[in-house]
Amino acid sequence: MIAHHLPLDMLVDYAAGSLKEGPALMVASHVALCAQCRTQVAAFEAVGGALLEEVRPAPLSEGAFERALAGIDSRPPAMPAPASQHDLAAILPLPLRRYVPAKARWKHAGGGVREIGLKLGEGPHLAVLLRIPGGGVMAKHRHTGLEFSLVLQGAFTDRGARYAPGDVCLAAEPEHEPLADAGVDCICLAVIDGPIVLTGRIGRLLNPWLRLKAKRAAARR
């Protein structure tokens, strides 16, 4: 049972097609696991469908239909997206799989936490898979923007709430320090909007990759 969902306005923005790639990946991944949010997104998409019927039609240039016909005759049918061969594939919702190449390896991020950076083609966001050992702590950190974490395996507790697979933890300003349940490693998709600032003793040493990405992201803005 999923207890922690995405904010409604993010689902609207997703349905309207205005989200950048990082947050769109977060929504698509959560929605793949969450029937409630999927139903909600479908309702918002229906608004898009109704608005499409509402526009005044614009005339197309001459021969447009013939070009479309040529298009359907010449192009091969779409191939299904190749399934990721990565060991993680079983726990990755489909939209996320193509972001995790078969050869992706966990890298040490310090403090026992490991990570796989995901490549985004657009926007100022960072996307990363994090793996916190069972019973472990993610270094204390804060961010200038929002951080969304979607649990894919295991569970963690943060500021008094528990997050299990499918749940999204939304961390805004204050510093936080998620604690993984004992048992299996906790694996999350984290999407971060705005540079991360690591605090605390481990944090200062931790995570050169995230720091580098944050700098690049700031430069891309």
Partner: peptide, 19 residues
């Protein structure tokens, strides 16, 4: 960049049933 998250992906990804 990378091809967008295609609607199909997410259609195929229906791991939990629709309400």
């Amino acid at each position: 960049g990378k091809p967008a998250l295609d609607g199909d992906d997410y259609a195929l990804a229906r791991q939990a049933p629709m309400e």
